[in-house]
């Protein structure tokens, strides 16, 4: 399945909806979107990965790159993910300690609201 990307802003949080496979072929599109969002002043990003079928280290690299960019502006990049097959690669690489990972967009928004 190809990669579908969409985004919307709610309060100060930009929610990026990702659907499909994030791999060496599709990851550049996600990278471009994250860079574009940051360049336009969106420094608090929430990437919803509930509809992601596949994620490899190329995709992880894009997410880490996005995190570095928003942190340079005191921003945040957090994830929504409950799929075990996707969470596994975050655990293997130790990135569960780097990203805030939430069970739902609502849960992430509540946590983001508390941190403001």
């Amino acid at each position: 399945m190809d990669l579908k990307l969409d985004h919307r802003t709610e309060d100060r949080l930009t929610i990026v909806e990702v659907e499909g496979e994030i791999d060496v072929y599709t990851a550049p599109r996600l990278r471009e979107l994250l860079i574009d969002l940051v360049n336009k002043g969106n420094f608090h990003l929430l990437v919803n990965m509930e509809k992601v079928d596949f994620l490899d280290s190329t995709g992880l690299g894009v997410l880490v790159g996005g995190l570095k960019r928003v942190r340079a502006h005191d921003g945040s990049l957090e994830l929504v993910c409950t799929q075990e097959r996707i969470l596994k690669i975050f655990r293997i690489t130790g990135l569960t300690k780097v990203f805030g990972i939430y069970a739902s967009v609502e849960e992430a928004k509540e946590a983001h609201g508390r941190d403001k």
């Binding site: 490899d56 280290s57 190329t58 992880l60 690299g61 690669i89 293997i92 690489t93």
Partner: peptide, 14 residues
């Protein structure tokens, strides 16, 4: 080549 090497580390874990 960080992500390239990262891939090998992931394979080693899988």
């Amino acid at each position: 080549t960080l992500m390239s090497g990262f891939g090998i580390a992931v394979i080693a874990a899988l």
